[in-house]
Nucleic acid binder design. Structure first.
Lengths: 193, 193
DNA sequence: TTATAAAGCTAACGACATTAGTTATCCAAA
DNA sequence: TTTGGATAACTAATGTCGTTAGCTTTATAA
C-alpha cells in the first residue's frame, strides 16, 4: 500500500486534464482514480464526492479565468479593453474546454465561495465597461450583453454548432466590433426601448 | 401484464415534461419508465437506449423551435423580423428549458437527421438576415452572431448566471437593439477588421 | 519509541443502463 | 371463429458508478 502523497493541487490538475481532453462527462470518480493509480473510494479523503469535485473544478476554473482576464485587460481602456477582454475569454475557453464546461454548472443556492469567484469574473467585465460612459443600470445591462455574446459564441463553437467552413475568428472579431458600434449608437441616445 | 399501448408521441411528450420540470439530468430510463408505469427494459421496444432517447428529444425540440420561429417571423421583414425571431427564440427556451437543454447536446458526426433539423433552425435565421443588405460571408457571420447572442443570453438566464435584480427582458431587448444598431454601422462600411 | 491522524485499502449496497430470454396481448388472415 | 405471428410488456442478470463503512498501514510529532 504505497502512499501516493496526493494533494488538492495535483488532484485538480489531473481532473482538469481529463476534462479538457475528453470532456467534463468523462470526469468520474472512477476515471480520475484510475488516472491517479488509486481506488475510487480513496478519493473521499480529498474530495466530498463527485459534486464537490466538480464544484472545486469550477472554482479553480473561475480563478484561472478571472486572473487571465485581469492580466490581459491591464493597462487598456475603452474599446481596446473590451477587445482584450473578449480575446482573453475566448482564448481561455479554447485552452480549457473541460474547465469551461465545469464553470457553467449552476451553483447551489447559497454557495458563497462560488458566488464570490463568479463575481470576480463579472467584476472584470464591469471594470472594463464602467469607464465607458455607461452609468447605473445601463452599465449592468451592457455587462450582461457582453457575457451573453462571449458565452454564446464559445458554447456554440465548442459543441460544433457552426458547421460552415467560415473563419470563426473573423466571426468573433466581427461580433465584438458590432457590439462596440451598437453600444456607441445607444450611448448617444439615438434609440429608445 | 396490461398492455399500455405506448407510442413514440406520448413517450417523447412524457420525457419532455420530465426534462422541462426537473432538468435534462432528471431524464433517465428509470425515471421515464416510472412515470409511464413501465419497467425500464420495456423502453427498449421504443427507443434504442438513453442516448437515442436524448437524440430524439433533441430532434423533437429542433422541430418545435423551427416551426415557432417560422410562425412568429412570418410576414415581417427587416428589424421587425429580427426582433420577432429573437422574441420567439427566448420564449421557446423559457417555455421548454429541458427540451432546450436537449438541443444543445453535440450531435454525433454524420447524424444527418440532426444536421437537417438544426439546419432548419439556422435557416430561419438566414432567411431573416438575408434580406438585410448583407451578402455572402457577411450574412453568414451575422447569422452566427445572432445565434451567439440568443444562445448566450438564454443559457446564462437558465443557469441563473444573472444575479442582480435587474429586469432581464430589458437586457434582452437592449441586446437586440444594440445588435441592430451595430449591424447598420457595419453595413455602412464604417469599420474594417 | 510510540501514539495518533491521515491516506490508502477491501467489501458491500443501491441506482442505473443494458442484454437476454420469456410471456402475454393484439390483430390479421384463414 | 380460430389461429398464428408480430409486438409490447415482463423477469432475471450483468457491469459500471457513486457512496458508505470499516480496516490497515504509513508518516509524523510527541
Amino acid at each position: 500500500m504505497p502512499r501516493i502523497g496526493l494533494d488538492r493541487t495535483t488532484l485538480l490538475q489531473t481532473a482538469t486534464e481529463l476534462a479538457d481532453a475528453e470532456g467534463l462527462n468523462a470526469v468520474t470518480l472512477a476515471s480520475l482514480a484510475q488516472k491517479l493509480n488509486i481506488r475510487s473510494p480513496s478519493l473521499y479523503n480529498h474530495v466530498n464526492g463527485l459534486p464537490d469535485l466538480l464544484r472545486q473544478m469550477a472554482l479553480h476554473g473561475l480563478t484561472l479565468l478571472s486572473s487571465a482576464l485581469s492580466r490581459e485587460v491591464a493597462g487598456k481602456t475603452g474599446d481596446d479593453a473590451v477587445r482584450a477582454l473578449c480575446r482573453a475569454y475566448l482564448a481561455f475557453a479554447r485552452a480549457h474546454p473541460g474547465l469551461y464546461e465545469a464553470i457553467q454548472r449552476a451553483p447551489d443556492e447559497g454557495d458563497e465561495a462560488m458566488q464570490k469567484a463568479g463575481g470576480e469574473v463579472v467584476g472584470q467585465v464591469v471594470a472594463v465597461v464602467s469607464e465607458y460612459g455607461l452609468q447605473g443600470d445601463a452599465a449592468l445591462h451592457a455587462v450582461r450583453v457582453i457575457r451573453s455574446l462571449l458565452h454564446g459564441f464559445v458554447s456554440l463553437e465548442r459543441q460544433g454548432g457552426f458547421g460552415l467552413p467560415l473563419d470563426l475568428d473573423v466571426t468573433f472579431r466581427l461580433m465584438v466590433e458590432t457590439f462596440l458600434a451598437g453600444v456607441k449608437t445607444i450611448r448617444n441616445g439615438e434609440w429608445r426601448l
